[in-house]
Design a protein around this nucleic acid. Structure first.
Lengths: 213, 213
DNA sequence: CTGCGCGGCATTGTATACAATCCCCATATC
DNA sequence: GATATGGGGATTGTATACAATGCCGCGCAG
């Protein structure tokens, strides 16, 4: 399955730089000098520039003409904004997924749910963030709406970014809520699925805000 | 002065190419050869490449590694997808706007509503599409959520693209529905506003689909 | 002491050059 | 006749080169 990375210098740069931003290695406001990035990656400036352009559209860097690129600063207010958008998208995704009865992702969703539940019960909370992301991603895929997936992915990346900046605010995801969402999807109850998915994000937002104390 | 085009070659290329796609000058599936674009714009390939990368993220072109860029082909199924996403985003926007009581955009919204109503009554339907776009844009701005505005803008651009391809399907927007939406916003009724805004998009989708006959 | 100009360095913006790859089509082989 | 194959032109991917611009500090005048 490993697709040979033929023409991927640009994509390599894009993924690496974005990962470094999202993971918090590059701090908000930090300037990203093309030449440095190029040298670090062992490539020329051209692919780097293209990657930066893409990252600007994605909303991770700011591009001031003549003054180069810098990592955007996401405020707490903006974090709230992102939660709201995600709630909207994800409750829609859950509604559609329920109409599809989960589609071909149903099996994967159940597998991830099972693994996460086991991990949660065993106290292996380190594994939960990745499983959490995967569950939600599968749910959006199950909606069968590729455009929804696309904008959701952008928002979710921004959310990872927010979490990486405010590490201390990342609450433990209430994993238990996933079971009810998936149940509503499986039984084909669109409105219930949408409601539960939306509330799930709301709760995450509340947990995030509570981290302020 | 304004005459000196400082650092804008890349943006010029981006705007020009996107406009030519949205307007239908470049047909879906058509290949976009970098060298041709560069020559047409009288610039080198580099800014063109950067513009194409940005357009890929925006969703207007497809970039096959080693095989260049081509205008994306949006199927009717995908058009439906886009309507669904827009419905989700815009009902959320209306809900937030109602919580803000329209914010500082309330005046502009009423002005646009009035102008559109007058135009509709006078049968000047040519003016309606632009006014329609403006009304909806103001509504999203009134939500006060800049991230919502960002993703909404992307989806709306895609929708313009869809309309430009399927010109014959663009139904007359039911302008009258706007008044009720704005009223719900003004009176601070979030759920009603969300419901009406969502239904408004649904109706537009129905009109679009009906064009198939 | 303070404000202003000016010069040099760092960095970005754009162009050009060259290598890698793909696609088409003609030709050969069975 | 169908399929393999190889060569050449067209196009993309990447690197390098150079011009344009902004930033910063130093000196100098008031």
């Amino acid at each position: 399955m490993a697709v040979t990375v033929r023409h991927a210098l640009f994509e390599t740069a894009l993924d690496k730089i974005r990962a470094d931003i999202v993971s918090g290695r590059y701090k908000p406001g930090q300037r990203l000098v093309e030449d440095r990035l190029a040298q670090e990656l062992g490539i020329s400036r051209n692919p780097v520039r293209e990657a930066l352009k893409a990252l600007e559209v994605e909303g991770f860097v700011e591009l001031n003409p003549g003054r180069g690129a810098s990592v955007v600063a996401i405020s707490l207010d903006e974090a709230d904004e992102i939660f709201v958008v995600r709630e909207s998208l994800e409750s829609t995704a859950a509604r559609l997924a329920a109409k599809n009865l989960g589609g071909s992702q149903l099996g994967e969703l159940e597998a991830v749910l099972k693994r996460g539940t086991k991990a949660a019960n065993a106290g292996r909370i380190k594994e939960l963030p990745d499983l959490n992301t995967e569950f939600h991603r599968l749910l959006v895929i199950a909606s069968g709406n590729s455009n929804l997936l696309k904008v959701w992915t952008m928002i979710r990346d921004k959310m990872e970014f927010v979490y990486s900046i405010h590490v201390e605010r990342r609450g433990l995801s209430s994993w238990g809520e996933h079971a009810a969402i998936l149940e509503a999807v499986k039984t084909g109850d669109p409105e219930l699925a949408a409601l539960l998915a939306g509330r799930h994000i709301s709760n995450a937002q509340a947990a995030f805000s509570a981290g302020a104390d």
